[in-house]
């Protein structure tokens, strides 16, 4: 699936860069994942940031959403579309 020019997948976001959730995809074949991510706060307009990546291979990702931190594998983070920027 191609993304709009200003968007990227959370899995590709730069570590430490403030992003905003722009949407969720269901491209992984994990039916419940999208729902679960929404329940945890990955909603359109929420600020999100990849705090750090595990080693080796940059996996898993520690992601800050709201006041919480979650560990996600790359495949899970790829479900989240993000765009750069702070929220007003």
């Amino acid at each position: 699936m191609t993304l709009p020019e200003n968007e990227m997948r959370l899995s590709d976001a730069e570590t430490g860069a403030p992003m905003v959730v722009t949407g969720l995809d269901d491209s992984t074949g994990l039916p419940d994942l999208q729902m679960r991510l929404r329940e945890l706060g990955f909603m359109e307009g929420e600020p999100v940031c990849v705090l750090r990546r595990g080693q080796p291979g940059g996996e898993p990702l520690a992601v800050r959403i709201g006041a919480s931190t979650f560990a996600l594998r790359r495949i899970e983070a790829a479900c989240v579309r993000v765009a750069a920027g702070h929220v007003a």
């Binding site: 074949g29 991510l37 898993p60 520690a62 560990a71 594998r73």
Partner: peptide, 11 residues
């Protein structure tokens, strides 16, 4: 074909 997920809170 099954994906392994993690999705775990770091409290």
């Amino acid at each position: 074909d099954r994906q392994h997920t993690l999705l775990m809170e770091l409290p």
